[in-house]
Design a protein around this nucleic acid. Structure first.
Length: 802
RNA sequence: GCCGCGGUGGUGGAAUGGUAGACACGAGGGACUUAAAAUCCCUUGAAGGAAACUUCGUGCGGGUUCGACUCCCGCCCGCGGCACCA
């Protein structure tokens, strides 16, 4: 009688074994093909691991363990994205240094992740707050700076009136300060920007060569928002000013009758200066400025004010009144719009202020909307293009003609904006620049990197909205690296996204003191073969890290243009009832408790069994019971192993089907059905008097990526002394997938009426004959003429009668 | 409003043109036990029927097909993202 399955002892034993034997440590090996599997590194919060972490980590752990068994040299690293607001806010509240808190949190996360038995190469763990790590984050920033991709610009920041601090966008909930619920307004401040828009087209093109889930590609495309169009230049009557408008729908340009400008457009002031409408316009601009972003977003009412000016339409020579409108956005296109009867928003505005409109297509009926975005209809009153049907070709033709005639120039507009890279915060990488009155912004010399975060007394941002570093005059005041004159350090820090934009490169060579990673290590390991992470990161993190990587590629520091070959995403795990897990709701599931009660193997396998991997799943502790029973059953099977066990064709066939199914399902991340199939196999084996050892071993190999600890123990119990980690992955034999008998469904007129069991060798004639003469089928054919018989090999016979 | 994903038993889900409900939870019944737990076995979409079996059934309405959860057209609902984008 075997001892009962005791996960606690087994899991500890094998985790120690892997650590001592350095089972998962890897080195470059030119003889072996590499595989780089990556999971998003966690933010080590004080709350500890969430059950969502085991879900994504187990999935990639399974893939990496399978790859090792397939003979690949597998890099599967982990680290911590440890700069961030929650730790800083905790520091403000308690006065404890963030570095100290971070250290504790990382230790706790490490302990928890190790309890789950992931096959990470822990020797490569990185921590973005480690000076030896952020030295290189700063270094990469300087490369961007030196090539003109980092620049300073006056930008509004979010300012909480009651906390008197600058807030990140993420800290604003429903337009209010997340911390105190107070009002938030915009304040202008000089901010460091990264020119990601220079990479907009490259980032768009790169999407064609990578294998990302469609959602990720579509969302990135949408975020970049590339739109081709034309820019018209309009003379303003009795003025030297010209107005440039952007149009993405050139088919409707003949319909335009008025122009609107964004209230914040810099030319507005000159345009109205001294005019009869100046006071009204100024009042409108002030009103608009007072409205917060959130209110503005919710505002449906269109409003505006006439500037008193008239622009000339280059197409017709006619006059177009120029208005300011609350819906014109300064940061899209040129901030000035030609408006027409073919845009519902323009129509609402025109009707409100009695501005004349003109349609350039005939409506079939009065209710039909002829919206600019539809691009359908036959043009009228459109000069040369009257009578032509709007098609993509015509739009091209029109754009070309406008350009040719000198009315317009081509222009591409993007939704994507340059990346605001400054934070007025303590807990981030200091921006390694020094400002000198004579030399301007000067980079900190490479041999002085990293610029370390100094120790401060208070972590709150200052009254002026600057980072607490600004109060450290000893640190701020320095000398200019160029002229040695007095100079000041930049006190802004980098955003959270900085450290995570290149961490996967550091994993290749984490202890390198001379480079962010050696060329050899990057050539061997990159690109990442498979990257799994959360849906919430498919836009920003992915875009930012692709941008940095493409930049590093352009300056010849990484070997590929794209960092990730393949990107998948896991669904979130929600609490029972479909709510997000949160401390305040008290519905958080702590992995420690689950491991204590059921074991890590059960937790791992359950998170894979819970539902389709890419969809949200509701946590259900009852579901763990079924998985625990399964592993118990597998454990019991070892008692039935026998050298003298006879071959059992039926069990063997089920085994080979399981090998095929599990192998394929891991590749498609259909982990839930892989587990289900192994459960079936365990039932099949359980019914046997004796199990041939060879069958059992193959089963254990299949199970090992899911439940590695129990698999190692069983592997040892059946007589092996080596770890199961590098045993070859089982392959199925096609001939064992063939049953000797098959069940054929018989349909009459599309309805299932019977099933018959026939030998696999039976001919089509035999089977259709058997179908037609089956006792259950005969009554359905009585008095009918058979029109057609469809035979699907191995599946069914469908009889159609008249 | 636009984009993406989803809607199947009491519950989580399986099946991407071929026997709807695999696998699991829960529930009911049984075996073992002095008893309980654990374990094992059976039943479990609905309705009708003694049974054989029949009818209905994958959000709603149409269509294609011998055959549709699956493909096409038109809707409804839920979740996520973007949103006055010219």
């Amino acid at each position: 009688m075997q001892t009962p399955y005791n996960p606690k002892d087994i899991e500890k034993k094998w985790q120690d074994h892997w650590k001592e034997q350095e089972t998962f440590l890897v080195k470059e090996d030119a003889q072996k093909e590499k595989f780089y599997g990556l999971v998003e590194f966690p933010y080590p919060s004080g709350a500890g691991l969430h059950v969502g972490h085991p879900r994504s980590c187990t999935a990639m752990d399974i893939i990496c363990r399978k790859r090792r068994m397939e003979g690949y040299n597998v890099l599967f690293p982990i680290g911590f994205d440890a700069f961030g607001l929650p730790t800083e806010n905790y520091a403000i509240k308690t006065g404890r240094p963030p570095a100290e808190v971070t250290k504790e949190n990382i230790a706790n996360f490490t302990r928890q992740l190790q309890l789950l038995g992931f096959s990470f190469d822990w020797s490569r763990a990185v921590d973005t707050t480690d000076t030896q790590y952020y030295k290189w984050t700063q270094w990469i920033f300087l490369q961007l700076f030196e090539r003109g991709l980092a620049y300073k610009k006056n930008k509004p920041i979010n300012w909480c009136l009651s906390c008197k601090i600058g807030l990140a966008n993420e800290e604003i909930v429903d337009g209010k300060c997340e911390r105190c619920g107070g009002e938030v307004e915009k304040r202008d401040k000089e901010q460091w920007m990264l020119a990601i828009t220079k990479y907009a087209d490259s980032l768009l093109e790169g999407l064609h060569e990578v294998d990302y889930i469609t959602r990720a590609k579509v969302q990135q495309e949408h975020w970049i928002g590339r739109k081709e169009g034309v820019v018209f230049t309009h003379a303003v009557k009795d003025s030297d000013i010209t107005l440039e408008t952007f149009s993405a729908y050139p088919a409707w340009l003949y319909a335009d009758t008025f122009i609107v400008m964004a209230p914040e457009h810099p030319d507005v002031e000159i345009l109205v200066a001294g005019g009869a409408h100046e006071q009204e316009v100024k009042k409108f601009i002030q009103e608009q400025r007072a409205i917060s972003d959130t209110e503005r977003r919710e505002m449906v009412e269109k409003s505006g004010v006439f500037t008193g000016r008239v622009a000339i339409d280059p197409l017709s020579g006619k006059e177009m009144p120029v208005w300011l409108a609350n819906f014109a956005l300064m940061d899209f296109g040129t901030g000035i719009i030609r408006c027409s009867a073919h845009d519902s928003r323009d129509v609402v505005f025109a009707q409100k202020y009695d501005i004349p409109l003109k349609e350039v297509v005939d409506r079939k009926d009065a209710n039909e909307s002829v919206d600019a975005h539809n691009n359908v209809g036959i043009l009228k009153d459109s000069g040369l293009f009257s009578g032509k049907e709007i098609t993509p070709e015509l739009i091209q033709e029109m754009s070309a003609w406008f350009v040719e005639q000198g009315f317009a120039k081509r222009h591409v507009s993007y939704r994507l904006h340059d990346w605001v890279f400054s934070r007025q915060r303590y807990w981030g990488e200091p921006i390694p620049l020094i400002h000198c009155a004579d030399c301007g912004w000067v980079p900190v010399p490479e041999d002085q990197l990293p610029v370390e975060l100094p120790h401060v007394e208070k972590y709150e941002p200052t009254d002026t909205g600057e980072s607490p570093l600004a109060a450290m005059s000893d640190w701020v005041n320095t000398t200019c690296p160029t002229c040695a004159g007095p100079a000041k350090r930049e006190t802004d820090t980098m955003p959270n996204w900085a450290g995570s934009s290149w961490y996967f490169l550091r994993y290749c060579d984490p202890n390198n003191n001379n480079e962010f990673a050696s060329k050899e290590s990057l050539n061997y390991w990159t690109p990442v073969d498979w990257y799994n992470g959360g849906m919430e990161h498919t836009v920003l993190h992915l875009l930012y890290s692709r941008f940095w990587h493409q930049f590093l590629f352009d300056i010849d520091l990484v070997p590929t243009k794209e960092p990730y070959k393949k990107r998948t995403s896991h669904g979130m795990i929600l609490a029972k009832g479909g709510e997000k897990m949160s401390k305040s709701k008290g519905n958080v599931v702590n992995p420690d408790d689950i491991i204590h009660e059921f074991g890590a193997d059960t937790l791992r396998t359950y998170t894979m069994f819970i539902g389709p991997f890419d969809q949200v799943a509701e946590w259900d502790t009852n579901g763990l019971i079924g998985v625990k029973r399964f592993l118990d059953r597998v454990w019991q099977l070892q008692e039935k192993i026998s050298d003298s066990a006879p071959e059992n064709p039926e069990a063997r066939n089920v085994l080979h089907k399981t090998i095929k199914k599990v192998s394929e399902d891991i590749e498609s991340m259909s982990f839930n059905t892989a587990v289900a199939k192994m459960m079936e196999l365990s039932h099949t084996f359980q019914k046997l008097e004796a199990i041939p050892q060879a069958y059992f071993e193959k089963f254990i190999l299949l199970l090992s990526p899911f439940a590695p600890h129990v698999a190692e123990e069983l592997w040892q119990n059946v007589g092996h002394s080596n770890t199961i980690t590098h045993e070859p992955w089982p392959t199925h034999n096609e001939k064992y997938l063939q049953e000797e008998e098959q069940t054929i469904a018989i349909q009459v007129n599309g309805k299932l009426r019977a099933t018959i069991t026939v030998s696999t060798n039976s001919s089509e004639e035999d089977i259709t004959m058997a179908a037609k003469t089956d006792t259950h089928i005969l009554p359905w054919l009585e008095g009918k003429t058979i029109k057609k018989v469809i035979y699907v090999p191995g599946k069914l016979v469908s009889i159609v009668t008249i």
